[in-house]
Design a protein around this nucleic acid. Structure first.
Lengths: 188, 188
DNA sequence: ACCTGAACACCGTTCAAGT
DNA sequence: ACCTGAACACCGTTCAAGT
């Protein structure tokens, strides 16, 4: 890794840190510069304005998410018993996260909101989710028929669950039970 | 409506307008004051700081959402044919909104993000969604058994769909068809 | 190519003062 | 009770200048 690459890495990591800790609202070029040990003008040499810095940060973040996802999928695939029910339960309990306690969900929420005002970020988000969809289809198809239907139903549900899990009447365990039942039935 | 109430109404409506048009990121006390024809200091007389203004705005917005929801539910209930399938299709096509083209989803996204950094907003969001849940349970129970399960599965799905509808493989029509099938089966 | 520092218009908040 | 205006520290961006 050469010097420039290292600098960029340092800037983007710092931006993610500040973004998670303080939110997009309280993110400032000066704060990032300070935390990354750069002068404001020097930071602006690497990223001309705040928008470009945010786009680069989101791309950088999605790359790390993809790596994590690949890892998780590998674990799931390796450890797979032939039992479909057990497999589905594992996938679901991994995906159904309480959004308020997860760094990842916090970061995604910032990204969604930023993206709603920025075309380039919207594309980055769309591209990421499409990749995510394809991987899920691939993963699910090892155990289930009609993977496209299952994924079309699983992904929105999981995304929504991170937001509203604290208000729905059923517990997480009951939700997993229900989802396994539904997926099993969906294939018939 | 007395003068004070009118002033507050004018301030909160202006805040919502600016929030939807420009996002929380670009919302400023000065901008709101200007658009609502007040001096900055006068706005601060009514809302001491930005946080208090945002909390009041979110409460105000949720109130209008509740009114809209009551209206929509009334329409659904009045026009109800005895056919469960038709009823479910109507509910679903009303709820499954493309998030990118809807003012409401834009506003909710801003609120979610703001809430992730503010305890009071979190409570406001939670209270709103709990009311929403109870109304949905009430609505659904007219036609279906196991309304708690159906709502626990419907609400997260609908929330998630607004975010990821553009990346999942199935079309909206196919999604509705699938959901009706699943709900029907869930009751058995 | 990489980095600096001053200047500008804008921001939220505070405060002392008016009616 | 309602409203004003000045002051403060902070913000993003621009720009002319250094190595």
């Amino acid at each position: 890794m050469d010097k420039k690459e290292e600098r960029l890495n340092q800037i983007l990591s710092t931006t993610i840190e500040v973004l998670i800790k303080e939110g997009a609202e309280n993110l400032s070029m000066r704060k990032i510069a300070k935390n990354a040990n750069l002068s404001l003008s020097n930071l602006q040499y690497y990223y001309k304005d705040k928008d470009l810095l945010l786009i680069a940060t989101v791309d950088f973040y999605f790359e790390s998410c993809k790596k994590e996802l690949t890892q998780a999928i590998k674990l799931l695939a390796a450890d797979s018993t032939p039992d479909k029910k057990v497999f589905l339960e594992k996938v679901l309990s991994m995906l159904l996260i309480d959004g308020r306690s997860s760094h990842q969900t916090l970061m995604f929420q910032e990204i969604w909101t930023l993206a709603s005002r920025n075309k380039e970020l919207q594309n980055a988000v769309e591209t990421y989710y499409k990749t995510y969809c394809l991987w899920m289809i691939d993963l699910v198809s090892a155990f289930c028929s009609k993977p496209e239907e299952i994924v079309s139903f699983l992904i929105p549900f999981v995304e929504g669950y991170t937001i509203v899990n604290n208000v729905i009447p059923l517990t997480k365990e009951k939700v997993i039970e229900m989802m396994v039942k539904l997926i099993t039935i969906l294939e018939k």
